[in-house]
Design a protein around this nucleic acid. Structure first.
Length: 577
DNA sequence: GCCGTTTTCGGCCCGACTGTTTTCAGTCG
């Protein structure tokens, strides 16, 4: 069981406790612990073995006992007792906007509503509006929400959400009364999937016309909230967009508030309180003087008022970033200009749309010093993968192209398939002849965890692979990826000097930040690759960068920060000696 | 339920908006 599983169980307990009407701080304790587990760099089993669960911030005696039980049985008494008492179908009802724990409890107690079906029936029969605290409007909302949820649910991949956010941002930026506009929320934190889009506008004029215009933008299907300071709409893609308009003097504190995460705010505001300060979207205030903010213009000012260094948005997860900031141990995050090359791309030789030279020229325009050309190997017939004869010729063609471009290096390479038995889909001497080899699993993804682990280990131990390409195989918002013992693979990668990739292609973002952070902690180096299939595709690198930053990676962790020469020395010691 | 260079008991972030109210609870972020 991975940490995400433990985290999800605690989260479920929290939801059940809410319906039960438990103490809200007890509920929060389960939420806090759930979030803390997501930030761990080592498997929970390790903490259990060392009897050190309570060293995790937010995990005390009770939750530690729950976790031990979960490791043995997959569940725990706290959870099973709640499920005996409450219907598990209730958990689905949390997706309905406007229904929180209190109203859900009323519906459950008074009308025995415990799932979406019974909820829909009761709303259609107009039973709900008769309940105390409910009315006609809520009943209508419920019906609309049940319909919406059955059609669509879940989070939107970051790349798609960013595109939508930018279109809203650009539309509003044209207005004269909009002095400044910025995308905040989980997009700014580079979360790989997005729940809703948050936009912040700075304006000295009346916010109302701005918010009215916002509700009338193309693509808006519903207006959810329309107040003096905040407006929320839903788009035709069923994504919620929140807009807040604020005085420019308060932009920093508002941006900070609107960027989140919620967990970061709770921790930071608790710290502020201990210092006799109060933080809100309107600034940092002394408790003794709640009328004049001591910081509000920039986020830097806000952190400074708390005697902290600036914490980049990507790190604001409510994990250990505030502690690190207090100790001056925050990582110096990787920047775009630190990335000297792109280490995964395709050309017309397999399934790409552009030539070697076209890719190189575009990469040079983007500011890179080198690229690796990594077309597919032969088993991927659908992608026109290369057999040994064609690869030999391709290596020559890459060398020729390299002669035709100045102050730039084109590395010859291959994205070689890791076959079902762990062997590599190419002759060994040709793999040795390549500068750079991305080893990837594409075919036969359905196999047992044990077999997949052995398969990948064999490739890692071959000494021929530079980096593992899109290491989980997951598709963002699609299939979940194959399972294997990541800890064992990381240990082997560190030992054999094999890196792991953060693949920036918009459908993948694989590894994500959480996996990359765990890999780094295990001593594994990271590579970034666009997996571009055209010159256009080279521009997705910021997504890989975003995951790297969210993982807390520094220059020293990422091989793309090395020169082409040093890069090759960092991997495959038996090939490059 | 968790936590503690103020505390092992008594706290636990802060504000906007809506609908159902007659001054506010519930929800959301």
């Amino acid at each position: 069981m991975d940490n995400a599983y433990y985290s999800s169980i605690l989260n479920e307990i929290s939801s059940l406790l809410k319906i039960k009407g438990a103490n809200k701080y007890k509920i929060r304790a389960y939420d806090t612990a759930s979030n803390a587990l997501r930030g761990l760099l080592e498997p929970i089993e390790k903490f259990i073995k060392d009897d050190s669960l309570t060293s995790i911030e937010g995990v005390g005696k009770s939750i530690a006992e729950d976790l031990v039980e979960i490791s043995k049985t997959g569940t725990c008494k706290t959870r099973t007792e709640l499920l005996d008492e409450l219907d598990p179908g209730l958990l689905d009802l949390f997706k309905i906007q406007g229904l929180g724990p209190k109203r859900l409890k009323t519906l459950y107690d008074d009308l025995n509503i415990s799932n979406l079906e019974t909820l829909k029936k009761a709303a259609e029969d107009h039973k709900i509006q008769e309940l105390k605290g409910f009315g006609k409007k809520i009943e209508e909302t419920i019906l609309a929400e049940v319909e919406r949820i059955s059609l669509n649910s879940g989070r939107t991949p970051l790349p798609a959400a960013l595109q939508l956010a930018q279109s809203f941002r650009d539309a509003l930026a044209k207005r004269d009364d909009v002095e400044q506009i910025q995308i905040a929320g989980s997009i700014r934190r580079q979360k790989e999937t997005i729940g809703d889009i948050d936009l912040l506008v700075a304006s000295t004029s009346d916010p109302k016309p701005i918010m009215d215009a916002f509700t009338k933008l193309p693509g808006v299907s519903d207006i959810l909230v329309h107040g003096d300071k905040k407006t929320s709409v839903r788009t035709v893609q069923d994504i919620q967009v929140d807009l807040r308009v604020i005085d420019p003097q308060l932009f920093g504190s508002a941006l900070h508030y609107f960027t989140g995460s919620k967990e970061h705010h709770v921790k930071l505001r608790t710290l502020a309180k201990k210092k006799g300060l109060k933080i809100s979207e309107y600034g940092v205030f002394k408790v003794s003087d709640p009328s004049t903010p001591i910081a509000s213009l920039t986020e830097e000012d806000l952190y400074e008022a708390l005697n902290l260094p600036f914490i980049p948005p990507e790190l604001r997860k409510g994990h250990d970033e505030i502690n690190l900031a207090q100790e001056s141990n925050l990582p110096t995050l990787l920047e775009q200009q630190d990335i000297l090359g792109d280490l995964h791309m395709h050309t017309t030789e397999s399934d790409g749309e552009n030539s070697i030279l076209e890719m190189a020229q575009r990469a040079k325009e983007l500011g890179y010093k080198y690229i690796a050309i990594t077309d597919h190997s032969q088993v991927l017939t659908v992608a026109n993968g290369l057999n040994p004869r064609r690869l030999a010729a391709h290596i020559e063609a890459i060398k020729e192209a390299n002669e035709q471009i100045e102050d730039f290096t084109i590395l010859s390479g291959l994205e070689v398939d890791i076959l079902k038995d762990g062997s590599l889909d190419m002759d060994e001497d040709l793999l040795r002849a390549c500068d750079w080899v991305v080893g990837s699993v594409h075919i036969s993804q359905k196999m047992s965890k044990e077999a997949m682990t052995e398969r990948i280990l064999k490739a890692v131990e071959s000494g021929l692979v530079s980096t593992l390409g899109h290491p989980t195989g997951r598709i963002l918002g699609g299939r979940g990826g194959y399972e294997y013992d990541m800890e064992r693979v990381f240990i082997a990668c560190a030992k054999n000097q094999v890196a792991v990739e953060i693949n920036g292609s918009t459908g993948r973002l694989d590894f994500n930040a959480e996996h990359a952070a765990i890999a780094r902690a295990a001593g594994v180096k990271i590579t970034l690759g666009s997996d571009a299939h055209s010159t256009h595709g080279l521009s997705v690198m910021p997504f890989a960068l975003g995951q790297a930053r969210r993982a807390g990676l520094e220059k020293a962790d990422v091989l793309n920060c090395l020169s082409a020469k040093d890069l090759l020395k960092a991997v495959r010691p038996s090939v490059h000696h």
